[in-house]
Structure formats: C-alpha cells, structure tokens
C-alpha cells in the first residue's frame, strides 16, 4: 500500500546527483554591537537519498544552516542551491521537523498532517490519500481523528514527520527532532526514522547533539566547530543498512563515536 506512493530508492551512494549544494555559504548577523560571524564560508554537497547528520556544539550555526536551506534566512555570502535552484525564499522542496512536534492543538492528526497541503493549495483528495498512507507507514493508523494532546511525545513527533513528508519534498530538514523524547523512545524513533527514510528515499539533513544517534542514522556525519561555525570533519559511516540497535555494540560503531567525540573533548556539548 505505502510503496505505491512512496517509492523505494536503492542506497548505492556513488553516482547519485546532488540535491543540496552549499557554495561558499557564510552568515554574519548584524547586531547593535557590530557584526557577529555565525558561519565561516562553507562548501558541501548532499546527494539524492543521502542521510547526512550534523553534530556540533551549541552556537556553531547548525540551525542557521538549516534555516538557510529552508529559505527562511539569506546567506551573507555564497549560494544555497537546492535541486539546481538558488534559494532566496521558502520553497516547495523542503519539509521541516523541529525539536518539539509543533502540532496545532485545534487540528486533529490528519488535519495537522494536511496543513502544508492546505497552505500551498495542493489538490486535497490526492494528498489526503498520501497523508493516510504516511500515517499508516509511521504506525499511526487509527489515530487520524485523535487530537495531539491525546498522543504520546513519540507519536506526536511521528505526526510532525508525516507533516514534513506530505507534500513530497525532495529534502527533509530535522533540527534535533528527538531531543525532547526520553532515551528509550528516542532509540525506537531512530530505528523508525531509518526505516521511513529508506522507504521514502528522501534526502535527510538532521541536526543532533547525540553522537551515537548521529552515527546510527548517518551515511555521513558532519562535525562542526564552534563560533563561528565551520566544518571540522566529515566521516563516512560505512555500516550496512538496515541497521538495528545491535549496531550500538559493533566495534566499528564504537570506534566511530570515539573519533567524533574526540572533536569535542575541549568544547562543551549540551
């Protein structure tokens, strides 16, 4: 059922075309006390269907990066390109998930998922079927008419993931999406997110403070350094998918997390 509308993409990383291109992107905030550089010029490319996770201390400009991709912020310099087009304003090719689910309490689950469709004026009937398929895929079948406050935190976040996917964007941006969940729900959601990403073939850019979460989810982990933000290192995570939670005990996994953690030995992560 779900596979009808949500195409499966094979994960061979080699000859995929770029979906996100950052070309010399930097950001400086102008404040009364003068210019505050937030991001040093950054260059990177994310290929179609790739899962990239960004880790970094607070104030490294991760969220700035994400907002620029969504078209909510303009870079001070350089170019943000999504699907070959330079981004200057909010656009169709992006879905966002924040740390809190940010569901509208007066809308039921289905109606919350349908919000981007309404805002963009897309054909309702067609996308409603897609919304129902997504809810089914994320294990929320039967909850379509429930209200957000009737759901657990993990379920609410799954609704917000469906909402980010409903208009079939090319990329999904996630800003610490599981930061507000308890540790056990968080692990479960990680497995779940991996499955959703494999089933939909979306390009995902996820920000997290959790190094194990980053290594578990990512094809590539981008480590950023603090203020002004810059890319400190990029690690390929070669472990095969689908990964199960057993991976957490894999020596390659442990080695990778230690390598990444070494970057933050003197800096604070919170």
């Amino acid at each position: 059922m779900a596979a009808r509308t949500l195409k499966l993409v094979d994960t061979a990383a080699d000859q995929r075309r770029p979906v996100i291109e950052m070309r010399g992107v930097s950001k400086t905030y102008r404040t009364r006390d003068g210019d505050v550089p937030s991001l040093k010029p950054i260059d990177f490319t994310v290929a179609e269907g790739e899962f990239v996770v960004i880790v970094g201390p607070s104030g490294c400009g991760k969220t700035t990066l994400l907002k620029m991709l969504a078209g909510l912020l303009q870079p001070s310099d350089g170019e943000v390109v999504v699907e070959g087009k330079a981004i200057t304003k909010p656009h169709r090719d992006v879905g966002i998930v924040f740390q809190t689910a940010l569901l509208l309490p007066w809308r039921n689950v289905l109606s919350n998922v349908m919000m981007p469709v309404e805002v963009k004026g897309l054909p309702r009937a067609e996308y409603e079927q897609r919304a129902l398929d997504l809810l089914k895929m994320t294990g929320l079948e039967g909850f379509e008419r429930k209200y957000p406050w009737q759901l657990s935190g993990g379920m609410q976040q799954r609704v917000s993931i469906c909402r980010a996917l409903v208009h079939d964007p090319k990329i999904v941006l996630m800003d610490e999406p599981f930061g507000a969940l308890d540790a056990m729900t968080r692990e479960k959601m990680n497995v779940e997110l991996q499955r959703i990403q494999r089933e939909t073939g979306k390009t995902v850019l996820l920000i997290t403070h959790s190094i194990p979460e980053a290594v578990f989810l990512a094809d590539r982990v981008m480590v950023m350094s603090a203020r002004p933000g810059a890319i400190a290192a990029v690690y390929e995570i070669p472990m095969p998918r689908p990964r199960t939670l057993d991976v957490l005990a894999d020596p390659r996994f442990v080695e990778m997390t230690q390598k990444i953690r070494a970057h933050f030995s003197d800096a604070h992560i919170d």
Binding site: A70, G71, L72, P90, V94, F98, P116, V119, K120
Partner: peptide, 11 residues
C-alpha cells in the same frame, strides 16, 4: 519555531 514552520510551508 511554529512561525518558522509555517513560513517554511510558504504560508
């Protein structure tokens, strides 16, 4: 964040 979300939806 809610406003950002809505704006990102091109609202």
């Amino acid at each position: 964040d809610m406003l950002d979300l809505a704006r990102a939806m091109e609202a």
